[in-house]
């Protein structure tokens, strides 16, 4: 019983960055822009969060407030990267996959560059306080409810999924986003400003993915180089697996989080499977999930296609 509860709690924690990034990816890809750059946005978000939090702590701000400042900084940095991706893909009609790869390289190099400048190490930053879980009677006593209801960023992730689900189905913005991703020419002829909507989608996706990075950094109380370790790509796979909907993507993230949680538990239990094989698990599960869902998951029709000038 206790083991199951721990597994559930661990699944939830692991899924948080995936959920942020995958729902972020939803806004970009639904508008028709492939977003491989989620990986770099996660990484940059993590770094911006630690840098801002550490700066604020050094200036005498208390740890929790500094961490929240870090979360805001992460979102801002992610938005900036999103704007860069939009500039290249929407304004200049560049190849979206290559733009994403370029941004990932920029993020990987840039964070290490700044890490060395700010903290004098190309491996990790100084420690920051992070955001403590809330102490609420009853709820904070059991591991599952403690993660689910007492951890601010988990609540935020949940809220992002619910709001995105509603936005996608119920609001003019969400419906236009769908239209632009399916048939930009038709959307244009109806008076929707296609390019502007894509800019919004991609920037929003950057902000959300970066929140995932902030979570990673706050969990570890520091930034380590390359700490996103492929999570952005897995989040993208979760988005595809979830048929490009926020709800589906979030469920897929929970599945991938579960696979990783099982891996971590097995690693601790020494069952005789080499640890390297357990490390492969999330990546293999992602590949199998993608192969299994193809045909039943239809991408937005205009995904990857640049606008005609």
């Amino acid at each position: 019983m206790e083991v199951t509860a721990l597994l559930v709690a661990s699944t939830l924690r692991i899924a948080v960055p995936y959920v942020f990034a995958a729902v972020g990816g939803f806004y970009s890809e639904r508008s028709g822009v492939v977003n491989i750059a989620l990986e770099g946005m996660l990484l940059t978000g993590g770094f911006a969060c630690v840098l801002a939090a550490w700066g604020a702590e050094s200036a005498g701000v208390n740890g929790t407030a500094a961490a929240w400042l870090g979360v805001v900084a992460a979102a801002a940095a992610g938005t900036a990267l999103g704007a860069l991706h939009a500039l290249l893909c929407v304004r200049y009609g560049a190849d979206q996959i290559i733009s994403g790869l370029g941004i990932n390289l920029l993020a990987a190099g840039g964070t290490k560059f700044l890490l060395t400048l700010a903290f004098g190490s190309s491996a990790n930053s100084s420690r920051i306080a992070g955001i403590p879980t809330w102490e609420i009677p009853w709820l904070s006593d059991w591991s599952v409810t403690r993660v689910l209801f007492c951890t601010p960023l988990v609540l935020l992730a949940g809220a992002v999924v619910v709001v995105s689900h509603l936005v996608s189905r119920r609001t003019p913005f969400g419906l236009r986003l769908h239209a632009v991703g399916e048939h930009p020419e038709a959307a244009h002829s109806l008076g929707i400003r296609v390019a502007r909507l894509r800019w919004k989608g991609v920037m929003l996706s950057g902000a959300l993915a970066a929140l995932g990075g902030a979570w990673l950094a706050l969990e570890q109380h520091q930034f380590t180089a390359g700490m996103s370790s492929g999570r952005g790509f897995i989040a993208l796979a979760a988005l595809i697996f979830g048929k490009w909907t926020p709800r589906g993507a979030a469920l897929a993230c929970l599945l991938f989080g579960f696979a990783e949680a099982v891996q971590i538990q097995l690693q601790g239990s020494r069952i005789g499977v080499p640890s390297q094989f357990l490390q492969m698990l999330p990546y293999v599960v992602t590949m199998i999930a993608l192969a299994g869902v193809i045909g039943r998951s239809r991408p937005p029709a205009a995904l990857g296609r640049a606008l005609e000038p």
């Binding site: 860069l84 200049y92 560049a94 290559i98 370029g102 941004i103 390289l105 190099g109 290490k112 560059f113």
Partner: peptide
């Protein structure tokens, strides 16, 4: 300067090429 400057240059080259 930190040696990662060359990684940044490399990424910038990619971004400029496609732009």
């Amino acid at each position: 300067v930190p040696k990662e400057l060359v990684d940044i240059l490399q990424a910038l080259v990619i971004l400029f090429v496609i732009a």
